[in-house]
Design a protein around this nucleic acid. Sequence first.
DNA 1: CTGACTTGCGCC
DNA 2: AAAGGGCGCAAGTCAG
Length: 553
Amino acid sequence: MRRILLRRIPGGLVEAVERSAGEEVPAVVARVPLEELPDHVRGHEGAAVRWVWDDTTRWYPGLLAAGVRVQRCTDLRLSHAVLRRSPAVDQALLAGTDTPGWDALAPAGDADAALFPLADPADALDAAAEDARQQAALAASPQRGRLALLLAAESSGALTAAEMTAAGLPWRADVHDRLLTDLLGPRPAGGARPAVLERLAGEIRTGLAAPRLNPDSPVELLRALQHAGLPVEDTRSWTLERIEHPAVPAVLEYKRLARLLAANGWAWLDTWARDGRFRPTFLPGGVVTGRWASSGGGALSVPTVVRPAAVADDGWRLVVADVAQLEPRVLAGMSGDTAMAEAARAADLYEGMVAGGAVATRTEAKLGILGAMYGGTRGESGRMLPRLARRYPRAIGLVEEAARAGERGEVVTTLLGRGSPPPTGAWAQRPVDLGEAPEESAPRADRDRDRRAWGRFTRNFVVQGTGAEWALCWLADLRNRLWELGEGRLEHRPHLVFFLHDEVLVHTPEELAPAVVTAVHASAAEAGRLLFGSFGVDFPLDVAVVRSWADAG
DNA sequence: CTGACTTGCGCC
DNA sequence: AAAGGGCGCAAGTCAG
């Protein structure tokens, strides 16, 4: 496999650098003007090549806009972040004069590009030197196999993220508008309150005897509720749901619709649904656990009520696939818990736990497992824990040990070796005090609470992070398979358009939908093999071929 | 007035 | 005895 490193050099040029076998120093193999880069890259894509660059967000959108798709890359920014946090990496091998620059390097946003086109901090960094350090650090790591897989998956995710933004999720503004009008009334002029909200506001004012109440103000609303004699300390929906009062249903309905208007109303449509596509920015590695973050339009929390507006183009379909109970299955695999893996053979893991005799009901199974993964021990989920621990000792033991490690201030890692951030709280700054004067008991209680909170974070980190790794492998393999299903430009073939932690949306010509369904399943199986080898854990998918996202599931 | 913080809620 | 993970976003709130 050729590894060709691209770097920007003064004069609007791009230099391609490659190290031949047996040579220490890489040689410049090409020097082209930026505008000729797409043709240059396209010319090499027929053969096996991995492009190495500082940051996918700085290279790939331009290539995609020119109609060039690449098979593989190494994203030095993302790889750097992983290696810097890995306990299995000798940090001395990563140290260089511009290491702080790599630490601080942020993905390029549109705003940055527009405002400071000439002052990109990435241009002060030596990508070839960083690549050499990363390769050396990786080669010397006892975990190089797993880390190499993680870096490849992370880099592939960076490509996928850019491709999904370029393609966009098909979005029908007319469908969305009709949906808003049905729920809220016609779009009002200016920033006025839609008719349905205005009517509900009136009902609330009457019901609470507060004629000038603005229901959008939590402070005013809380005062009005308390003045009406209701025993509430906040205005959250789940608080109000438990209150018997004639005005409460109107308040809840108002909050539900006001939320829709504010988050995914007409303003959202104007801003985010341009040219029939929703194009958020996906940020691989944007969450400490390795999950993706996003920016723009609240992409990772598109409410189900507006999903009817995500509609495939004419003659096309959406293939919507999600994994049932990803994280418990990942936990079974990473802990090597054969009993839990047995339960995971059921399409519904929780039913599998019931069948295995661990618990009596599906509800108990779900509560217990979620509690074990999140650190919830209150009520039902806490009562389930001892039974789960007896039945699934390795799985429960793994998350318990992650929690204890976090409480000790230690770093924990995912299966592929992503390290948790070191704790920063005051409690972690010195060893646990063995004895303290009584007057210091309050700060000590604070420290213990913070310590437990960090334990819950590390407990969840190992599972959420490994789940993110499974999903990355799934996505990467699926991306490869989809490319093989069609011809021509990326957006003329079946292609990924959305990714939501454990769910993918593929936009595909109708006649290729069955092949996409096959590919989605095959990739899930491959992801399981990549992470867990011969230790069999099933990752069953719910897959739907639909016109609209809302028709899935 | 702006900017930082809080509240509340959508998703996994 | 108590102990619920990770995000993004908009509007309200409040200090400077």
